[in-house]
Design a binder for these strands. Structure first.
Length: 412
RNA sequence: CGGGAGAUGGCAGAGCGGUUGAAUGCACUGGUCUUGAAAACCAGCGAGGGUAACACCUCCGGGGGUUCGAAUCCCCCUCUCCCGGCCA
């Protein structure tokens, strides 16, 4: 949720940051108008209420003095119906405003480059050389070693599901443990959270109301499968007021993730790059506002370090405004090199959501006497399936076998 | 899934129609005392909106209703706890 008071006060500035993310300026003007209208209506109802409260307090006094109550009662009855009327208008306005406001994305930070889509993201860093093969490297789905069983995954569920077998299953588990240990060593506390969450949590992190089509919903219940651990982990502190001296709070959590991939028909239909169910180790940070952008850099460096430790060539990209996610103010993607596909593919996306999620989820901290909204950040550290694909393609041998990265050997 | 109890500030826990946004205790913050600490004593201490600051408005799980007035009465929902059934 954007800060409506900020929008009202500094309309030009805010709308500029928003148009970076391709937002219709007419919509913003409408929000501003509605907000102003709401304020007027609200104060008029409040005045009526103040009147009602004040006069109601006269009743016990009148009674004590044995004065006539009839006239006072008549006045208040009238006033009451005015309140009800005004309140109805107010509720309509509030609902209208909320409906629009919840659909407005977070503001892009100044440092975010302009651009319409992924082609205009800025590459900031390349780590490790792209390896040379003395044979034609294969796609992970063409590798002969028995790692992934695509057919049986589809048989027992449907397309975009797969099963892991043999060393694939083992490597998958090794990666999870390696990631979690790595994150913990960097000061992230591990937590285990629900995979099914309520509507309120989904709204808190920004998946709802706008992206309901992307989520698996439990039939007959207002519950959803999580598309990322970001949802339960960020909402861990929803409605809470944290102590300033315990910030930043750094959490890491391993979960399965479930996505409908509604908009990706025909994309990545082969292999396990884009599945309805995948596993991910996530990192989430709750910070004071003035340190969140520094922490964003730290987080992306940490993920890069992890990829380096696996000897996987990768690059860092700063997403341009047009490619930025709904809740994010700034995002750094990490893409790993896939020799079989001859291209870089995303394995991690680290974002600073600033106060966008904390305003929705009411996550605050005590700053002296005042309560302020924290900044929330999150990132994959790392996507398990895609990292496994990267290992398969980068560590493949001419005979089709796959070597195990040095740092993972003790986990296998 | 069946039977019972309940949901009040960071926690514990009063209040059950009228100066109650809420007693009391603990925790917390500041002060006095002390070489320092503890103890004791004094003071402060819920959230959101509004304002230059006050005033003022809203909030006692959520939603609706009765009333001039509701934390207190009525209805619906959700959640929690205890007992039983089922179960990793």
């Amino acid at each position: 949720m954007v800060d409506l008071r900020e929008l009202e006060k500094n309309f030009d500035e805010v709308s500029e940051k928003l148009t970076k993310k391709k937002i219709d300026i007419e919509l913003l003007k409408l929000v501003k108008e509605k907000f102003a209208e709401l304020k007027v209506q609200k104060s008029s109802v409040e005045e009526l209420r103040a009147e009602q409260n004040k006069n109601s307090k006269l009743f016990p006094i009148y009674k004590k003095e044995k004065k006539d109550i009839g006239e006072l009662k008549a006045i208040l009855s009238q006033n009451k119906s005015d309140i009800i009327l005004g309140n109805e208008k107010l509720k309509v306005l509030e609902l209208e405003l909320e409906t629009i406001a919840l659909g407005i994305p977070n503001l892009a930070d100044e440092s975010v480059p302009l651009g319409a889509g992924e082609d205009e993201n800025i590459e900031t860093k390349k780590v490790l050389e792209i390896p040379e093969f003395n044979f034609e490297p294969k796609n992970h789905w063409d590798l002969t070693e028995n790692f992934i069983d695509f057919e049986r995954g589809v048989k027992i569920s449907k397309s975009r599901f797969s099963a892991l077998v043999g060393n694939g299953a083992k490597l998958h588990r090794a990666l999870i443990n390696y990631f979690l240990d790595f994150n913990q060593a960097k000061g992230y506390q591990e937590i285990v959270v629900p995979y099914i969450v309520n509507r309120n949590s989904m709204q808190g992190t920004g998946q709802l109301p706008k992206f309901e089509d992307d989520l698996f919903k439990i039939e007959g219940e207002e519950l959803f499968l999580i598309p990322t651990a970001e949802v339960p982990v960020t909402n861990f502190f929803a409605d809470e007021i944290l102590n300033a001296d315990e910030l930043p709070i750094k959490l890491t959590s391993y979960t399965s993730c479930f996505r409908k991939e509604a908009g990706s028909a025909g994309k990545d239909t082969r292999g396990m790059i884009r599945q309805h169910q995948f596993d991910k180790v996530e990192i989430v940070v709750f910070s004071k506002p003035d340190e969140s952008f520094r922490i964003l850099e730290e987080m992306s460096e940490m993920v890069s370090e992890m990829l380096t430790s696996l000897k996987l060539p990768h690059r860092l990209l700063t997403l341009c405004g047009g490619d930025l996610g709904f809740s994010s103010a700034k995002t750094i993607d990490l893409e790993v090199w896939l020799p079989g596909q001859n291209q870089y593919r995303e394995v991690s996306s680290v974002s600073n959501m600033t106060d966008f999620q904390s305003r929705r989820a009411k996550i605050r901290y005590k700053d002296g006497k005042k309560n302020r909204l924290v900044h929330t950040l999150n990132g994959s550290s790392l996507a398990v399936g895609r990292t496994m694909v990267a290992i398969m393609e980068n560590y493949q041998k001419a005979d089709g076998s796959i070597e195990i990265p040095e740092v993972l050997k003790k986990y296998m």
